[in-house]
């Protein structure tokens, strides 16, 4: 029973199930596969994970759409740089997506300052992606300050998940 539960909840199983679910309707990606030219080396976008190549879903589940920050900081951590390096490779491979980077802050700051802090985080994220070859003019940034938390509990672990920059594959929204 325990084993069955853990298998059902395992990422591999979920990815397989999702892959089966979308396989029937996923359109074949028409873009040329230039992964060799770009030196992609980790199987990004080869469909092995189940999400359609080049899809928002693939970006979110296989690459990771967000990075996290220390309190009151917009410095990219080594972990964040690693995620963003993967994002850059994927974004270069799939240039059809408009990119909006949303900067966010946790609730332990004042409203106006957090708007600027979120903007700083978005700008740092954009600058890193640009340094990795994503055209700067393809990237828009927006800050939501502390207004859009994803975690709503009241402790440090939740606040740390809200201090984030999310790379969204769409135009900015209010």
């Amino acid at each position: 029973m325990l084993a069955a539960t853990s298998i059902l909840k395992s990422p591999a199983f979920l990815a397989l199930a999702l892959g089966l679910a979308v396989a029937g309707c996923a359109k074949k990606d028409k873009l040329p596969d230039n992964s060799g030219q770009l030196g992609l080396n980790n199987g990004v976008g080869n469909g092995s994970g189940g999400a359609p190549d080049g899809s928002q879903q693939q970006f979110t589940t296989e690459i990771g759409d967000r990075v996290f920050f220390e309190t009151d900081s917009s410095t990219l951590t080594p972990q964040a740089r690693q995620v963003l390096t993967g994002q850059a490779q994927w974004l270069i491979r799939y240039p059809q997506h408009p990119i909006t980077i949303e900067g966010h802050a946790d609730e332990r700051g004042t409203r106006e300052y957090n708007l600027a802090l979120g903007a700083r985080r978005a700008a740092a994220t954009r600058d890193f992606l640009a340094s990795q070859g994503v055209p700067r003019n393809r990237i828009r940034t927006i800050s939501f300050g502390k207004e859009r938390p994803v975690e709503v509990c009241n402790d440090i672990s939740c606040w740390s998940k809200n201090r984030r920059a999310r790379t969204a594959l769409s135009a900015p929204q209010g």
């Binding site: 927006i142 800050s143 939501f144 209010g174």
Partner: peptide, 8 residues
């Protein structure tokens, strides 16, 4: 301040 049209 408003975020209307995705432009704060």
């Amino acid at each position: 301040m408003s975020f209307e049209g995705g432009q704060p």
